[in-house]
């Protein structure tokens, strides 16, 4: 693969709740335009890691940078302003707001330079035609898959550099899962870098460029996705 610009970088990151660290020594380099997927067994620290990236959990050791700019001390909304958009797991839309209001509220309280322009809004709506036609519908009336689309769209409104997805397939019925991942790939093809954590390894690997396997809070492996099936035994990796 040709050397592309590194847009998101962590160096020796450690974090946790209360006493001990849940994750430690995590270093990643995410290249522009990639889908970088973090997989691992339950309790391996995937969620902790993405919360640290999003700025919801304090980084105890190490640093995080986006396009060579340090963002370690910034809180979540400030990181959005720096181009890091975050889609939380499941409860990721405001159910009593309409689709249109959800889209508006997602950027209007950010710093001025991230507030979505009409042009950006057009681009996002073109990408998600199923929500574009029902702007006055309350988000709570959408199906699980459609809510997930709306959540992506809200994150995209800030014209992010990197899209952070926290288990995009969580809570979805199996028939939507493949569709969601196809959409992620489609969004990615527009040039957007995606970092996601996922339980559904099979589907996640289908679209991933780089895969990191996290076990017990430490990086077990970080390789191009194409190598995973052929040279590494996932079962062995997961079970240690």
């Amino acid at each position: 693969m040709t050397a592309r610009e590194i847009v998101l970088k962590t160096k020796d990151v450690a974090a946790g709740y209360g006493g001990g660290d849940i994750i430690s020594n995590i270093s990643i380099d995410v290249e522009e335009g990639q889908i970088f997927t973090v997989i691992g067994p339950n309790g391996s620290g995937k969620s902790t890691f993405i919360k640290v990236l999003a700025g919801l959990l304090h980084t105890r050791v190490g640093g995080i940078s986006i396009k060579d700019e340090q963002i370690t001390p910034l809180a979540a909304p400030e990181r959005v302003a720096k181009g890091l958009a975050y889609v939380p797991q499941e409860y990721n839309v405001f159910p009593n707001l309409t689709i249109n209001e959800n889209l508006r509220v997602s950027t209007e309280f950010l710093k001025r330079d991230r507030c979505a322009t009409g042009e950006q809004r057009e681009r996002v709506l073109n990408m998600f035609p199923e929500i574009a036609t029902r702007l006055t519908l309350r988000a709570g009336h959408l199906s699980g898959g459609q809510r997930q689309m709306l959540a992506f769209a809200c994150a995209m409104m800030a014209a992010p550099v990197v899209l952070l997805l926290d288990e995009p397939s969580a809570g979805l019925s199996p028939k939507f899962v493949a569709e969601i991942f196809d959409r992620i790939k489609a969004v990615n093809r527009t040039g957007l870098t995606v970092v996601m954590i996922e339980q559904n390894v099979k589907e996640a690997l289908r679209i991933a460029d780089t895969v990191m396997v996290l076990v017990n809070g430490a990086t077990r492996l970080s390789v191009p996705a194409s190598e995973i099936g052929s040279t590494h035994d996932l079962h062995k990796l997961f079970l240690g």
Partner: peptide, 8 residues
């Protein structure tokens, strides 16, 4: 919490 992530 979602509102906080959105900068509200």
């Amino acid at each position: 919490s979602l509102a906080a992530v959105r900068g509200v």
